[in-house]
């Protein structure tokens, strides 16, 4: 493990933690512009976090210790995930200790703890949200894993730095199966991050919400961690998408800080575009009924499997 590897590793985690709220702010701003509203300040998420951290936490009388542990677990999972996704460079030592399957496991852990925390207080909304979250989750998880299988088959590895390195090494050769995988991935991203058309991030209307219903009972620092973790999740998914389908400008092994800076610039540019794209998509689309959500995700799953099949077809059935 070299010094540059450690640097890349630290930079990936710190960048994720620092930039994630900014991404949320940027998406909100774009969406406000597109909808002819006055946009909230770009740095509003940071201010919200600071405000929440200063406040006194209020816990429901029926909350158990599990409830208090959930924000830390969820935040921990998301930050560790940020450490294994090649966002700036591919020289990630942590990428050896946890591969793509472990990443899916991390997301699943966070989701399950969120759902358990939501059920802990014992309100109708909490358990409703938990149920819906798990419903989305159990359909999104296989789809995500199939997307990862796609890239893993192309590169013959499940370690994410290796996957990205090999995808970059192939040059810009268009892999037909990647087209399917990318589409499926975007659908999973929307569903998993509680965006339209599955969930509306801007609403607090009980009957339309999934994510918001689960976090109703959190306050102050707990809420801050949950919100930060949600932002990190969006950031992580975005970086995952870039790493697989748009691996431009990533610093490779044994490169110095300049390459990292270049990678950061690329990342910022990609995030700007992706955030704007997300806002545009959310402005244009309407929310699906909850029971259309499985259909949406089943579609994502099928697309990912279809990608896998075309991959197998084009490689003559042999990896």
């Amino acid at each position: 493990m070299t010094l540059s590897a450690l640097l890349t590793q630290a930079a990936a985690v710190v960048t994720a933690a620092a930039l994630a709220p900014l991404l949320v702010g940027w998406v909100n701003q774009c969406r406000a512009w597109l909808q002819n509203r006055t946009a909230p300040p770009l740095l509003l998420p940071y201010r919200t976090l600071r405000k929440l951290l200063h406040k006194d936490a209020v816990l429901a009388e029926s909350a158990s210790p599990l409830f208090r542990a959930v924000p830390y677990v969820v935040f921990g999972c998301m930050l560790v995930a940020a450490g294994i996704i090649p966002s700036l460079g591919t020289d990630l030592p942590a990428g050896r200790a946890a591969d793509a399957i472990a990443l899916v496991g991390l997301f699943a852990t966070a989701r399950m703890f969120m759902a358990l925390g939501a059920m802990d207080v014992g309100t109708a909304f909490g358990s409703l949200g938990a149920r819906r979250e798990m419903l989305i989750g159990f359909l999104a998880e296989p789809a995500l894993l199939m997307v990862l299988f796609n890239v893993a088959l192309i590169s013959g590895s499940t370690a994410m730095p290796v996957i990205v390195d090999r995808l970059v090494a192939q040059g810009f050769a268009v892999n037909p199966s990647l087209a399917f995988a990318a589409l499926a991935f975007v659908m999973v991203l929307l569903a998993e991050n509680a965006r339209l058309p599955i969930d509306n991030p801007a609403t607090h209307l009980e009957l339309t919400m999934i994510h918001e219903a689960m976090v109703l009972e959190y306050s102050a620092r707990h809420l801050a961690l949950i919100e930060w973790a949600a932002a990190l999740k969006l950031f992580n998914y975005a970086c995952l998408g870039f790493a697989f389908f748009l691996p431009l400008g990533l610093a490779s092994e044994d490169t110095g800080p300049t390459a990292l800076l270049l990678g950061a610039t690329w990342l910022a540019a990609k995030l700007l575009l992706a955030g704007a794209g997300l806002a545009l998509f959310e402005t244009l689309s309407a929310k699906l009924r909850v029971f259309r959500a499985p259909e949406f995700l089943a579609m994502a799953f099928m697309l990912a499997v279809l990608g896998l099949l075309t991959r197998l077809l084009f490689s003559g059935g042999v990896a």
Binding site: S62, M112, M119, F138, L139, E141, P142, M146, F301
Partner: peptide, 26 residues
């Protein structure tokens, strides 16, 4: 493999139900 993952993701759903309904809530 897709079916296997689906089953294991559903197992998560089942366990949230099992644990949440017995031990959590009021």
């Amino acid at each position: 493999a897709a079916l296997l993952v689906l089953a294991s993701a559903l197992a998560g759903y089942v366990m949230v139900k099992f644990y949440g309904v017995i031990f959590l809530g009021r």
